[in-house]
């Protein structure tokens, strides 16, 4: 352990993002983090805005609804719903991994891709039901 005696700076560094070839597990992992952060900041923020607007009365809710109906409002809402369904699907994948299943390369790759695709499909289905009802 010659390294340890030279102190903190001499400890070996693990290779970072640019070293590895991208695979499905890496993509689903970072998307889980990105969508989770988006939900925490934008999603929960929008939820509180919605509740606050409702409490504020009819006029303030009408203002909220008008903003939500604009093109940028729709982009934010669709973004939140995608983050929700993506985080939901990759979160369910985490439950499976938690019990020790799904670590074999082939099934890990398959379920990584499935959770990303399913998140996008559920987002599309949600808006289809919402807009076509």
């Amino acid at each position: 352990m010659a390294q340890a005696s030279t102190g903190r700076k001499a400890r070996p560094l693990s290779p970072h993002l640019q070293i590895w070839r991208w695979g499905p597990a890496m993509a689903v992992s970072i998307l889980h983090r990105v969508s989770g952060n988006g939900l925490a900041v934008v999603g929960l923020g929008a939820l509180l805005c919605w509740l606050g607007a409702l409490v504020g009365g009819e006029a303030s809710y009408a203002n909220f609804a008008a903003q939500a109906g604009t093109w940028y409002g729709r982009i934010v809402l669709i973004g939140i719903s995608w983050a929700f369904f993506n985080h939901l699907c990759s979160g369910l994948r985490h439950f499976v991994l938690d019990i020790g299943a799904g670590f074999e390369v082939k099934s890990n790759n398959i379920w990584s891709i499935v959770s990303i695709v399913l998140g996008a499909l559920l987002t599309a289905a949600f808006w289809a039901v919402l807009l076509l009802r």
């Binding site: 509180l48 606050g52 409702l54």
Partner: peptide
């Protein structure tokens, strides 16, 4: 945020 949400 939780306090505000629950109050609403």
């Amino acid at each position: 945020a939780v306090a505000f949400g629950l109050f609403c």
